[in-house]
Design a protein around this nucleic acid. Structure first.
Lengths: 164, 164
DNA sequence: TAAGATTGAGTTGTCAATCTTA
DNA sequence: TAAGATTGACAACTCAATCTTA
């Protein structure tokens, strides 16, 4: 859409040429990177959302988390998380059990098989992140990018809860 | 996955703590922003991929492009583009016709209805981009982010072709 | 009444196979 | 043979409705 038109609708703050170029670079790079990472994980039979769930579980005490905690961590709707975890469970990578404290809740635990697969996938994945993101810029640029994105995340989800 | 383990597999360059934090901020912010933008466009009956296709068409001479050009622009597989454009055509937002020069090709043109819808959706969308991305950081931060992402895009797709 | 989680129906995306023309 | 584009089968995601317990 044009960036500097007279603006018949009220108060739309269009992007100027530089902002627009930056925005398009952002969109294009995120799309290309997503695609690249998807292909890397595909070789291990994992989608990116699935991979991230396994990562969070691997870092949790007892390698287990409640469904709602995972959903907040990986920015997923509860519904999507249920479907995704159902697949992971079908493949024997995680196991679900009723939560001990809150009987409405469900705990999801990483299996040994899940951990083993994650160990393999992580090599590929981290190497890809480094190659395509870190190696494309200076360390300082990357850390600055991280700070900027942290600000974005905080503004969109101040409590880190990611309510859906 | 852990960031500094002994590394039994060869030559995996793990992320250090700062790099890892930056990477997670990036992932989290992009997920949250995607979600937010999706909801904004939903009110206009458009997905983000659909919106981007309409934008590219609106900027093209004659408001028309070949399918393969669109695919490169918006980083989509040909197959996905065909499905998406089929939906846009069903809704009367674009129209396809055989390419004049190359009879293998197909041209896709924005309809008046498509342009009108885009004009409306663009207000919402641009306002969201500004609110959630631009307003979350300084202008210089944002332009720096754009430069970094431009480097990433160039590395992933040097010719700007996005071969799938 | 609300929170945690799941379900099923419909939509969108992926992959491999196919068709047409260069 | 290869490039442009499409197709259909299958997988993943979204939304609204449902079920259970707090």
């Amino acid at each position: 859409m044009s960036t500097s038109q007279p603006d018949t609708q009220p108060q739309t703050r269009w992007l100027d040429a530089e902002e627009q170029a930056a925005w398009r670079s952002y969109i294009r790079a995120t799309r290309l990177l997503d695609e690249e990472l998807r292909r890397g994980l595909e070789d291990h039979g994992l989608s990116h959302p699935e991979y991230e769930i396994l990562v969070r579980l691997s870092e949790a005490p007892g390698r287990a988390l409640r469904m709602s905690e995972i959903a907040g961590d990986v920015v997923s709707s509860r519904s999507r998380l249920t479907h995704t975890v159902a697949r992971l469970e079908r493949d024997g990578l995680v196991a679900r059990r009723a939560s001990s404290c809150d009987r409405r809740g469900v705990e999801c635990a990483l299996t040994d098989r899940g951990y083993a697969l994650l160990e393999q996938a992580a090599h590929t994945h981290v190497e890809q992140v480094r190659t395509h993101l870190l190696d494309a810029m200076s360390r300082e640029q990357f850390l600055a990018l991280g700070r900027a994105m942290q600000q974005v995340a905080s503004a969109l989800d101040p409590k880190g809860l990611h309510r859906v």
